[in-house]
């Protein structure tokens, strides 16, 4: 097993009186897709936001590449190479693909942007992801389909030499063919050696692309297992009940809330 690129140990997070994360351990390995599953309100998004620096953690440690790190702002996360693709994608419709990919981090002099350089870099990134569904990188995002937009949002995250990419429900709003494109892309990211975190409600997607499945249940990490070792129904049980046979929380009476 490889050294984890990102590891969370005993992370706790409360919003006021509500404790959202209880001693969560979470591991992301380079070259693997780790699916993060759980019911609504299980704490998936909070976990991602803690790693992304949007919420500071209350207690617990975060290790990046084996080193303990403190992530207190999105900038810290970006510096480490952690990128998040949010569900709403955060793309500006009126700008083209290149402009979106470099938004806020334009290359060149502020008074003289280096368009050619940005366009080449954007094309290299898209080519390295084997994206074949867009005819021109100078197309405005408004002209793209949902899947293409998702692709651009992911490519935008990859562009920054990132090490870990977290995708929040990337296929939730997509059709069958577009879901296919995005799942292929997720797989390729891992093949390129990135640590990929996939948040999804869709078990078919999870089983198709992930190497490991981490299940959150009411703010606790109840299982972190290899995808090949579990079945579909076991994961569903883990999500809904927090345990499934030997997996998950030991016995109901052992649970203390």
């Amino acid at each position: 097993m490889t050294q984890p690129i990102l590891a969370l140990r005993g992370v706790n997070k409360s919003f006021g009186a509500v404790q959202v994360l209880h001693d969560v351990d979470f591991t992301v390995r380079a070259g693997e897709v780790t699916a993060l599953v759980g019911d609504n309100g299980a704490g998936k998004s909070t976990l991602v936001k803690c790693v992304a620096g949007i919420h500071p953690v209350d207690r617990g440690e975060i290790f990046f590449d084996g080193e303990p790190v403190h992530i207190t702002s999105p900038t810290d996360a970006a510096k480490l190479g952690i990128e998040v693709v949010y569900q709403d994608l955060a793309l500006a419709d009126n700008l083209d693909i290149v402009q979106n990919m470099f938004l806020g981090r334009e290359r060149g002099n502020p008074w003289m942007l280096d368009e050619a350089e940005m366009e080449q870099a954007a094309r290299r990134t898209l080519a390295s992801l084997s994206v074949r569904t867009v005819t021109s990188v100078r197309m405005p995002v408004s002209a793209l389909s949902g899947g293409q937009r998702q692709t651009v949002a992911i490519a935008k995250a990859v562009l920054w030499d990132s090490k870990v990419i977290m995708l929040d429900e990337p296929t939730a709003a997509l059709g069958v063919a577009q879901t296919r494109q995005v799942l292929d892309l997720v797989r390729r990211l891992a093949e390129q050696g990135l640590g990929v975190v996939l948040i999804s409600h869709n078990m078919a997607d999870v089983f198709e692309v992930s190497d490991r499945i981490a299940t959150l249940y009411l703010g606790r990490m109840v299982a972190d297992v290899a995808t090949k070792d579990v079945t579909h129904s076991q994961v569903v049980e883990l999500i809904t009940a927090g345990r499934s046979g030997e997996l998950g929380l030991a016995r109901p009476e052992a649970v203390t809330i």
Binding site: D88, L91, N94, Q99, L103, G104, E106
Partner: peptide, 16 residues
Amino acid sequence: RHVYAVGGNREAARRA
């Protein structure tokens, strides 16, 4: 570029 971005999607601009 940022003027266009703010007009196109202010939230995206802020996050960028």
